[in-house]
Write a protein that binds this DNA or RNA. Sequence first.
DNA 1: ACTGATATGTCAGCCTTGTTGACTTATTTT
DNA 2: AAAATAAGTCAACAAGGCTGACATATCAGT
Lengths: 155, 155
Amino acid sequence: MKQPSPKFAALSASDIEELDHIELLFFAYKEFTADADRILEGIGFGRAHHRVLFFVNRKPGLIVAELLDILGITKQSLARVLKQLIEAGYIDQEAGSHDRRQRHLYPTKAGRELILNLSLPQSRRIKAALKQSSKAQDETIKNFLRQMTDIVPDR
Amino acid sequence: MKQPSPKFAALSASDIEELDHIELLFFAYKEFTADADRILEGIGFGRAHHRVLFFVNRKPGLIVAELLDILGITKQSLARVLKQLIEAGYIDQEAGSHDRRQRHLYPTKAGRELILNLSLPQSRRIKAALKQSSKAQDETIKNFLRQMTDIVPDR
DNA sequence: ACTGATATGTCAGCCTTGTTGACTTATTTT
DNA sequence: AAAATAAGTCAACAAGGCTGACATATCAGT
Protein backbone atom coordinates (compact mmCIF):
# COMPACT_ATOMS: atom_id res chain seq x y z
CA MET A 1 0.00 0.00 0.00
CA LYS A 2 2.88 2.38 -0.77
CA GLN A 3 1.94 5.75 -2.14
CA PRO A 4 4.16 6.72 -5.04
CA SER A 5 5.69 10.18 -4.71
CA PRO A 6 4.57 12.65 -7.36
CA LYS A 7 7.88 12.66 -9.20
CA PHE A 8 9.36 9.33 -8.31
CA ALA A 9 7.95 6.02 -7.27
CA ALA A 10 8.96 4.86 -3.83
CA LEU A 11 11.71 2.30 -4.21
CA SER A 12 14.03 0.36 -2.03
CA ALA A 13 17.48 -0.87 -2.94
CA SER A 14 16.18 -4.41 -3.20
CA ASP A 15 14.26 -3.42 -6.31
CA ILE A 16 17.48 -3.22 -8.25
CA GLU A 17 19.63 -6.27 -8.68
CA GLU A 18 21.89 -4.94 -11.38
CA LEU A 19 23.88 -2.35 -9.43
CA ASP A 20 26.95 -4.54 -9.79
CA HIS A 21 26.52 -4.60 -13.54
CA ILE A 22 26.11 -0.83 -13.64
CA GLU A 23 29.27 -0.32 -11.65
CA LEU A 24 31.24 -2.84 -13.69
CA LEU A 25 30.16 -1.21 -16.92
CA PHE A 26 31.25 2.19 -15.62
CA PHE A 27 34.74 1.00 -14.67
CA ALA A 28 35.16 -1.15 -17.77
CA TYR A 29 34.32 1.75 -20.06
CA LYS A 30 36.52 4.13 -18.10
CA GLU A 31 39.58 1.93 -18.50
CA PHE A 32 38.69 1.18 -22.07
CA THR A 33 38.66 4.84 -23.10
CA ALA A 34 41.73 5.62 -21.00
CA ASP A 35 43.77 3.31 -23.23
CA ALA A 36 43.31 5.51 -26.25
CA ASP A 37 43.32 8.78 -24.31
CA ARG A 38 46.95 8.27 -23.42
CA ILE A 39 47.88 8.20 -27.10
CA LEU A 40 45.49 10.97 -28.10
CA GLU A 41 46.84 13.50 -25.65
CA GLY A 42 50.27 13.09 -27.20
CA ILE A 43 49.01 14.30 -30.58
CA GLY A 44 46.58 17.01 -29.52
CA PHE A 45 43.42 15.12 -30.33
CA GLY A 46 40.57 14.06 -28.07
CA ARG A 47 38.01 11.32 -27.82
CA ALA A 48 35.78 13.04 -30.33
CA HIS A 49 38.50 12.75 -32.97
CA HIS A 50 39.00 9.13 -32.07
CA ARG A 51 35.34 8.27 -32.54
CA VAL A 52 35.13 10.01 -35.90
CA LEU A 53 38.23 8.31 -37.20
CA PHE A 54 37.08 4.96 -35.85
CA PHE A 55 33.79 5.02 -37.72
CA VAL A 56 35.23 6.47 -40.91
CA ASN A 57 37.68 3.61 -40.84
CA ARG A 58 34.97 1.09 -40.09
CA LYS A 59 32.83 2.21 -42.98
CA PRO A 60 35.02 3.96 -45.53
CA GLY A 61 33.05 6.20 -47.85
CA LEU A 62 30.22 6.88 -45.45
CA ILE A 63 28.65 10.29 -45.81
CA VAL A 64 28.45 13.03 -43.22
CA ALA A 65 24.76 12.43 -42.47
CA GLU A 66 25.45 8.76 -41.72
CA LEU A 67 28.31 9.67 -39.44
CA LEU A 68 26.13 12.15 -37.58
CA ASP A 69 23.54 9.47 -37.11
CA ILE A 70 26.05 6.95 -35.77
CA LEU A 71 27.66 9.38 -33.37
CA GLY A 72 24.43 10.99 -32.25
CA ILE A 73 25.83 14.52 -32.16
CA THR A 74 25.07 17.72 -34.05
CA LYS A 75 26.77 18.69 -37.25
CA GLN A 76 28.34 21.69 -35.52
CA SER A 77 30.01 19.41 -33.01
CA LEU A 78 31.18 17.08 -35.73
CA ALA A 79 32.43 19.91 -37.93
CA ARG A 80 34.90 21.05 -35.30
CA VAL A 81 36.75 17.76 -35.09
CA LEU A 82 36.22 16.58 -38.64
CA LYS A 83 37.80 19.76 -39.96
CA GLN A 84 40.88 19.15 -37.86
CA LEU A 85 41.13 15.55 -38.96
CA ILE A 86 40.91 16.57 -42.60
CA GLU A 87 43.44 19.39 -42.22
CA ALA A 88 45.82 17.10 -40.38
CA GLY A 89 45.60 14.64 -43.26
CA TYR A 90 43.88 11.75 -41.53
CA ILE A 91 40.61 11.88 -43.47
CA ASP A 92 39.80 12.66 -47.11
CA GLN A 93 36.53 14.00 -48.44
CA GLU A 94 35.02 13.22 -51.81
CA ALA A 95 31.85 14.54 -53.40
CA GLY A 96 29.34 11.81 -54.21
CA SER A 97 29.11 10.69 -57.82
CA HIS A 98 25.31 10.31 -57.76
CA ASP A 99 24.59 13.17 -55.39
CA ARG A 100 27.35 15.74 -55.44
CA ARG A 101 26.03 17.44 -52.32
CA GLN A 102 27.09 14.49 -50.25
CA ARG A 103 30.60 14.21 -48.84
CA HIS A 104 32.01 10.73 -48.66
CA LEU A 105 34.67 10.30 -46.01
CA TYR A 106 37.71 8.08 -46.30
CA PRO A 107 40.63 7.49 -43.99
CA THR A 108 44.02 8.33 -45.48
CA LYS A 109 46.98 6.02 -44.99
CA ALA A 110 47.98 8.10 -41.97
CA GLY A 111 44.39 7.89 -40.73
CA ARG A 112 44.36 4.13 -40.98
CA GLU A 113 47.64 3.90 -39.15
CA LEU A 114 46.46 6.20 -36.39
CA ILE A 115 43.18 4.46 -35.76
CA LEU A 116 44.90 1.11 -35.65
CA ASN A 117 47.34 2.36 -33.09
CA LEU A 118 44.49 3.80 -31.05
CA SER A 119 42.57 0.55 -31.28
CA LEU A 120 45.50 -1.63 -30.41
CA PRO A 121 45.55 -1.13 -26.62
CA GLN A 122 41.76 -1.42 -26.54
CA SER A 123 41.97 -4.57 -28.58
CA ARG A 124 44.62 -5.98 -26.28
CA ARG A 125 42.48 -5.23 -23.25
CA ILE A 126 39.46 -6.95 -24.76
CA LYS A 127 41.49 -9.88 -25.98
CA ALA A 128 42.97 -10.35 -22.53
CA ALA A 129 39.57 -10.05 -20.89
CA LEU A 130 38.30 -12.77 -23.23
CA LYS A 131 41.32 -14.94 -22.68
CA GLN A 132 39.67 -17.52 -20.47
CA SER A 133 36.49 -17.45 -22.50
CA SER A 134 35.42 -20.02 -25.00
CA LYS A 135 34.03 -19.08 -28.37
CA ALA A 136 30.54 -19.63 -27.00
CA GLN A 137 31.26 -17.27 -24.14
CA ASP A 138 32.52 -14.64 -26.55
CA GLU A 139 29.19 -14.89 -28.32
CA THR A 140 27.44 -14.49 -24.98
CA ILE A 141 29.33 -11.29 -24.33
CA LYS A 142 28.84 -9.86 -27.79
CA ASN A 143 25.19 -10.76 -27.65
CA PHE A 144 24.81 -9.01 -24.32
CA LEU A 145 26.40 -5.84 -25.67
CA ARG A 146 24.29 -6.04 -28.80
CA GLN A 147 21.14 -6.39 -26.74
CA MET A 148 22.17 -3.42 -24.64
CA THR A 149 21.91 -1.18 -27.66
CA ASP A 150 18.62 -2.54 -28.89
CA ILE A 151 16.53 -2.41 -25.75
CA VAL A 152 14.07 0.36 -25.06
CA PRO A 153 13.75 0.36 -21.28
CA ASP A 154 10.68 2.57 -20.99
CA ARG A 155 8.46 0.84 -18.49
CA MET B 1 60.49 -6.93 -43.54
CA LYS B 2 58.24 -4.04 -42.63
CA GLN B 3 59.92 -1.01 -41.17
CA PRO B 4 58.00 0.37 -38.21
CA SER B 5 57.33 4.10 -38.46
CA PRO B 6 59.04 6.18 -35.79
CA LYS B 7 55.83 7.00 -33.95
CA PHE B 8 53.61 4.09 -34.78
CA ALA B 9 54.20 0.53 -35.76
CA ALA B 10 53.05 -0.41 -39.24
CA LEU B 11 49.77 -2.27 -38.93
CA SER B 12 47.09 -3.63 -41.14
CA ALA B 13 43.45 -4.03 -40.26
CA SER B 14 43.89 -7.77 -39.96
CA ASP B 15 45.98 -7.22 -36.84
CA ILE B 16 42.90 -6.25 -34.89
CA GLU B 17 40.11 -8.74 -34.45
CA GLU B 18 38.23 -6.90 -31.75
CA LEU B 19 36.85 -3.98 -33.74
CA ASP B 20 33.37 -5.43 -33.34
CA HIS B 21 33.79 -5.53 -29.59
CA ILE B 22 35.02 -1.95 -29.53
CA GLU B 23 32.05 -0.78 -31.53
CA LEU B 24 29.58 -2.76 -29.45
CA LEU B 25 30.99 -1.37 -26.25
CA PHE B 26 30.68 2.16 -27.58
CA PHE B 27 27.03 1.76 -28.52
CA ALA B 28 26.15 -0.19 -25.40
CA TYR B 29 27.61 2.48 -23.14
CA LYS B 30 26.00 5.25 -25.13
CA GLU B 31 22.52 3.80 -24.72
CA PHE B 32 23.21 2.91 -21.13
CA THR B 33 24.07 6.50 -20.16
CA ALA B 34 21.26 7.92 -22.27
CA ASP B 35 18.76 6.14 -20.03
CA ALA B 36 19.70 8.24 -17.02
CA ASP B 37 20.42 11.39 -19.00
CA ARG B 38 16.78 11.70 -19.91
CA ILE B 39 15.84 11.89 -16.24
CA LEU B 40 18.78 14.07 -15.25
CA GLU B 41 18.04 16.79 -17.72
CA GLY B 42 14.61 17.18 -16.19
CA ILE B 43 16.09 18.11 -12.82
CA GLY B 44 19.06 20.20 -13.91
CA PHE B 45 21.73 17.68 -13.05
CA GLY B 46 24.28 16.01 -15.28
CA ARG B 47 26.17 12.76 -15.46
CA ALA B 48 28.71 13.97 -12.97
CA HIS B 49 25.99 14.32 -10.34
CA HIS B 50 24.71 10.89 -11.22
CA ARG B 51 28.08 9.25 -10.72
CA VAL B 52 28.66 10.93 -7.38
CA LEU B 53 25.24 9.96 -6.08
CA PHE B 54 25.63 6.44 -7.40
CA PHE B 55 28.85 5.77 -5.51
CA VAL B 56 27.76 7.54 -2.35
CA ASN B 57 24.73 5.29 -2.41
CA ARG B 58 26.82 2.23 -3.14
CA LYS B 59 29.16 2.86 -0.25
CA PRO B 60 27.40 5.08 2.28
CA GLY B 61 29.80 6.84 4.59
CA LEU B 62 32.72 6.85 2.21
CA ILE B 63 35.02 9.84 2.55
CA VAL B 64 35.83 12.45 -0.04
CA ALA B 65 39.28 11.04 -0.77
CA GLU B 66 37.81 7.63 -1.50
CA LEU B 67 35.23 9.11 -3.80
CA LEU B 68 37.90 11.04 -5.67
CA ASP B 69 39.83 7.85 -6.10
CA ILE B 70 36.84 5.94 -7.43
CA LEU B 71 35.81 8.64 -9.86
CA GLY B 72 39.32 9.48 -10.97
CA ILE B 73 38.73 13.23 -11.11
CA THR B 74 40.19 16.19 -9.25
CA LYS B 75 38.73 17.53 -6.04
CA GLN B 76 37.88 20.79 -7.77
CA SER B 77 35.74 18.93 -10.28
CA LEU B 78 34.08 16.95 -7.56
CA ALA B 79 33.49 19.99 -5.37
CA ARG B 80 31.33 21.65 -7.99
CA VAL B 81 28.80 18.84 -8.25
CA LEU B 82 29.04 17.59 -4.67
CA LYS B 83 28.19 21.05 -3.38
CA GLN B 84 25.08 21.14 -5.53
CA LEU B 85 24.01 17.68 -4.39
CA ILE B 86 24.43 18.66 -0.75
CA GLU B 87 22.60 21.95 -1.17
CA ALA B 88 19.77 20.22 -3.00
CA GLY B 89 19.43 17.82 -0.11
CA TYR B 90 20.48 14.60 -1.82
CA ILE B 91 23.68 14.02 0.15
CA ASP B 92 24.64 14.61 3.78
CA GLN B 93 28.11 15.21 5.14
CA GLU B 94 29.40 14.14 8.51
CA ALA B 95 32.78 14.74 10.12
CA GLY B 96 34.61 11.53 10.95
CA SER B 97 34.59 10.40 14.57
CA HIS B 98 38.17 9.16 14.51
CA ASP B 99 39.56 11.78 12.16
CA ARG B 100 37.43 14.90 12.19
CA ARG B 101 39.12 16.28 9.07
CA GLN B 102 37.44 13.62 7.01
CA ARG B 103 33.97 14.11 5.59
CA HIS B 104 31.81 11.02 5.39
CA LEU B 105 29.13 11.18 2.72
CA TYR B 106 25.67 9.68 3.03
CA PRO B 107 22.70 9.75 0.69
CA THR B 108 19.57 11.32 2.16
CA LYS B 109 16.20 9.72 1.67
CA ALA B 110 15.69 11.94 -1.36
CA GLY B 111 19.13 10.95 -2.58
CA ARG B 112 18.34 7.27 -2.31
CA GLU B 113 15.09 7.75 -4.14
CA LEU B 114 16.75 9.73 -6.91
CA ILE B 115 19.56 7.28 -7.52
CA LEU B 116 17.15 4.39 -7.58
CA ASN B 117 15.05 6.14 -10.18
CA LEU B 118 18.15 6.89 -12.21
CA SER B 119 19.30 3.30 -11.94
CA LEU B 120 15.96 1.80 -12.80
CA PRO B 121 16.03 2.24 -16.58
CA GLN B 122 19.65 1.12 -16.66
CA SER B 123 18.74 -1.88 -14.59
CA ARG B 124 15.86 -2.70 -16.89
CA ARG B 125 18.11 -2.47 -19.91
CA ILE B 126 20.66 -4.79 -18.37
CA LYS B 127 18.03 -7.19 -17.12
CA ALA B 128 16.50 -7.37 -20.57
CA ALA B 129 19.88 -7.85 -22.21
CA LEU B 130 20.52 -10.74 -19.82
CA LYS B 131 17.09 -12.21 -20.35
CA GLN B 132 18.09 -15.16 -22.48
CA SER B 133 21.24 -15.72 -20.48
CA SER B 134 21.73 -18.44 -17.94
CA LYS B 135 23.29 -17.77 -14.58
CA ALA B 136 26.57 -19.11 -15.94
CA GLN B 137 26.39 -16.69 -18.83
CA ASP B 138 25.74 -13.81 -16.47
CA GLU B 139 28.93 -14.77 -14.68
CA THR B 140 30.74 -14.81 -18.02
CA ILE B 141 29.60 -11.29 -18.73
CA LYS B 142 30.39 -9.94 -15.29
CA ASN B 143 33.74 -11.62 -15.39
CA PHE B 144 34.51 -10.05 -18.74
CA LEU B 145 33.66 -6.59 -17.45
CA ARG B 146 35.68 -7.20 -14.30
CA GLN B 147 38.66 -8.28 -16.36
CA MET B 148 38.30 -5.19 -18.50
CA THR B 149 39.07 -3.01 -15.51
CA ASP B 150 41.98 -5.07 -14.26
CA ILE B 151 44.03 -5.44 -17.39
CA VAL B 152 47.05 -3.30 -18.11
CA PRO B 153 47.34 -3.43 -21.89
CA ASP B 154 50.83 -1.97 -22.23
CA ARG B 155 52.54 -4.08 -24.83
C1' DA C 1 13.19 26.94 -65.70
C1' DC C 2 11.74 27.91 -61.29
C1' DT C 3 11.03 26.64 -56.64
C1' DG C 4 11.43 24.22 -52.64
C1' DA C 5 13.82 20.62 -50.25
C1' DT C 6 18.18 18.63 -48.97
C1' DA C 7 23.33 18.09 -47.66
C1' DT C 8 26.79 20.40 -45.90
C1' DG C 9 29.36 24.12 -43.85
C1' DT C 10 29.97 28.05 -40.78
C1' DC C 11 29.56 31.80 -37.15
C1' DA C 12 28.55 32.95 -32.54
C1' DG C 13 27.56 31.94 -27.98
C1' DC C 14 26.30 28.96 -24.15
C1' DC C 15 26.78 24.85 -20.77
C1' DT C 16 28.88 20.94 -18.40
C1' DT C 17 32.65 18.87 -16.75
C1' DG C 18 37.17 17.96 -16.95
C1' DT C 19 42.02 20.33 -16.02
C1' DT C 20 46.02 23.19 -13.35
C1' DG C 21 47.79 26.29 -9.86
C1' DA C 22 47.55 28.73 -5.71
C1' DC C 23 45.93 29.32 -1.28
C1' DT C 24 43.05 28.64 3.28
C1' DT C 25 41.36 26.18 7.27
C1' DA C 26 40.98 22.55 10.44
C1' DT C 27 42.98 18.73 12.36
C1' DT C 28 46.26 15.14 13.14
C1' DT C 29 50.94 13.44 13.44
C1' DT C 30 55.65 13.82 14.51
C1' DA D 1 55.87 23.66 17.78
C1' DA D 2 56.12 22.21 13.17
C1' DA D 3 54.89 19.47 9.39
C1' DA D 4 51.69 16.71 7.07
C1' DT D 5 47.07 15.70 5.76
C1' DA D 6 41.87 16.27 4.43
C1' DA D 7 39.02 19.16 2.60
C1' DG D 8 37.37 23.44 0.53
C1' DT D 9 37.79 27.49 -2.51
C1' DC D 10 38.98 30.87 -6.25
C1' DA D 11 40.34 31.68 -10.89
C1' DA D 12 41.25 30.53 -15.44
C1' DC D 13 41.34 27.38 -19.17
C1' DA D 14 40.02 23.42 -22.58
C1' DA D 15 37.19 19.84 -24.74
C1' DG D 16 33.17 18.80 -26.63
C1' DG D 17 28.42 18.80 -26.23
C1' DC D 18 24.31 22.19 -27.41
C1' DT D 19 21.08 25.93 -29.94
C1' DG D 20 20.01 29.36 -33.42
C1' DA D 21 20.78 31.56 -37.60
C1' DC D 22 22.32 31.76 -42.03
C1' DA D 23 25.09 30.57 -46.60
C1' DT D 24 26.01 27.58 -50.49
C1' DA D 25 25.54 23.99 -53.63
C1' DT D 26 22.84 20.65 -55.60
C1' DC D 27 18.87 17.90 -56.47
C1' DA D 28 13.96 16.96 -57.50
C1' DG D 29 9.30 18.07 -58.72
C1' DT D 30 5.99 20.91 -61.14
